[in-house]
């Protein structure tokens, strides 16, 4: 259903990729770790290595959690838009086909947050 309007109603999206100075948005959430209230938003160049995403950017964001030091990336499972997805750590975001505003979730079996409460 279209917007009811008095005149033509057409606007360009406020967050098109070209507005991010060569970078793209990528969202990452850690399942069952609600100490981080929401997934994080990253603004990264498409040539960012996936390993850098995990070891640098995510480590910076999620490192406060006591479970972080137990995360074993060889055992982590990933979801992209809710569907199972398998990254290659040595590839870049672009090579992995990650598009602007894609959303990833990672799951760390065996880690259940503070006192097992998914916190």
């Amino acid at each position: 259903m279209a917007v009811q309007a008095l005149k033509d109603y057409k606007f360009s999206p406020a967050d098109a990729q070209e507005k991010f100075h060569g970078a793209q948005l990528l969202y990452v959430g850690w399942d069952e770790h609600l100490m981080f209230c929401a997934p994080f938003a990253y603004c990264l160049p498409p040539n960012t290595l996936f390993s850098d995403l995990c070891q640098k950017f995510m480590a910076h964001s999620f490192g406060y959690h006591p479970d972080w030091k137990s995360v074993d990336f060889s055992k982590v499972t990933w979801l992209k838009s809710g569907q199972p997805w398998q990254p290659d750590m040595s590839k870049t975001l672009a090579e992995l086909g990650l598009k602007h505003k894609d959303v990833l979730r990672f799951q760390t079996p065996g880690l259940k947050g503070i006192n097992g409460t998914c916190s």
């Binding site: 209230c37 997934p39 994080f40 938003a41 990253y42 910076h60 964001s61 947050g113 006192n115 998914c118």
Partner: peptide
């Protein structure tokens, strides 16, 4: 769901390690 999280944060704050998220959230 919440008490353990809040207690953990409070204890950490008392140890001088108050939690501030350092990355912007998805909206």
């Amino acid at each position: 769901y919440y008490r353990a999280r809040f207690t953990y944060w409070r204890d950490e704050a008392e140890k001088g390690n108050r939690f501030y998220s350092n990355t912007l959230p998805m909206l």
